[in-house]
């Protein structure tokens, strides 16, 4: 699995910093490749919750996409940690766990939205746009 990859993030023009956390390399690359929202710029990717927290401490993202089932630290625990560091971070859970209880637990811990895997490009864009609208960050 790839490791966390925190890059420097000198963002301009009101762009929002995005971190992608998923233990699947192909899902991380898919989200990065299919991102169609100009205001979001990927600054870091992480293969598990622990690496995501490390990258987030160095450079807190504004928006995070978060898997749940991951080694080392799962997405629910990671959400709790990220919200402690930056309470206004926007977190979209992207997970195959499709039961209501999991979605509710993630939202209670501080996530702002839930997208179920598998997803299309359009569903990803719509979920991220809804997340930004909900936080008043739409254009």
């Amino acid at each position: 699995m790839a490791s966390a990859n925190a890059k420097a993030s000198p963002l301009t023009g009101g762009k929002l910093k995005l971190m992608i956390c998923d233990d699947s390399n192909i899902i991380r690359r898919k989200i990065e490749r299919e991102l169609q929202i100009e205001r979001l710029q990927v600054i870091a990717t992480a293969a598990n919750g622990k690496l995501a927290v490390e990258a987030f401490r160095k450079d807190p993202a504004d928006v995070v996409t978060m898997d749940i089932t991951m080694p080392e630290m799962d997405g629910i625990e990671c959400v709790e940690n990220l919200v402690k560091i930056k309470p206004d971070v926007l977190i979209l859970i992207i997970s195959a766990l499709s039961d209501k209880a999991t979605a509710i637990e993630a939202l209670k811990k501080g996530a702002n939205g839930f997208l179920c895997k598998p997803f299309t490009d359009r569903q990803l864009t719509e979920a991220l746009e809804e997340l930004l609208r909900g936080a008043g960050n739409d254009d």
Partner: peptide, 8 residues
């Protein structure tokens, strides 16, 4: 993982 997770 996806098919098993969806089964929940």
């Amino acid at each position: 993982n996806t098919i098993s997770g969806n089964a929940r």
